[in-house]
Amino acid sequence: MVSRRAPDAAVREPLLQGALPMAFLLVLFMYPVARFLLISVEGGTLAHYDKALLDGLYLGVLIDTFRIALVVTAITLVLGYPLAWFLVSAPPRWATVGLVLLILPFWTSVLIRTYAWSVILGRNGVINRVLLDSGVIEDPLRLLNNEIGVLIGMVHVLLPYMVFPIYAVMRRQDPTLLLASSGLGASGFQTFTRVFLPLTVPGILAGTTLVFVLSLGFFITPAILGGGKVMMIAVLIEQQVRGLSNWPFAAALSAVLLAAALAMYGLLSFTMRARQA
């Protein structure tokens, strides 16, 4: 219980302590956001939002962005969940190797990794060479400058963001729960669907939100591996700013992106709270 009649100094102290970080956050984060939100409604008009959300061309980009983000999220989940399970349940030595392999790419820039993919996926890339030489295919596969390339690159970069939250939640689970389930008559599959999976849902929600939100704003990978043929909202924003100097429209698109991310986050915390209640 905090006394309302605490000495002034004791009240002022935490305030002062909080003031500096607060100012830091305001200047470095809130100000830029406020600034671009202002730019987006420059001249007191919502015309830019109108264009971003209702013009068929731009609406299409928005829908494509969400669709690609959704597919990336689904693929990383399908790959990431078993991978997280492997990391939790494998013998310590193998788990360490797995973790290192997963973390290692983090130390390389996304740009370099993306260019590496273009080498691997290209017409004369590693994959096509191997498949052509071994006679599996006659014409090179088109893996670059299209959505397939973008998806491969994005899944590669974003997979750890799916694995780690799930891994963390799996690690927290009490292994005797699985024994108990088995002892009560449940098969391995029943134990998974009725005990393990429900208990790891928080990890799935966290990983899914993280990957989805990051996917929405992804720039480098779609820009390079999409070869200008895959338009995502971040690529569009960059074009508007650099190519056309259309700052207000770019700002409106950014605001839409921010709103989508916040909505996802809101949905997540709502779901989490509903589960806890």
């Binding site: 009490d174 005797t176 729960l177 108990a180 389930s181 002892g183 009560l184 008559g185 449940a186 005990v195």
Partner: peptide
């Protein structure tokens, strides 16, 4: 274990 029809109380109860 799931075929044995044995009830068990664990040290930490292991409630779901």
């Amino acid at each position: 274990p799931n075929k044995r029809n044995i009830g068990m109380v664990f040290q930490n109860y292991a409630l779901f």
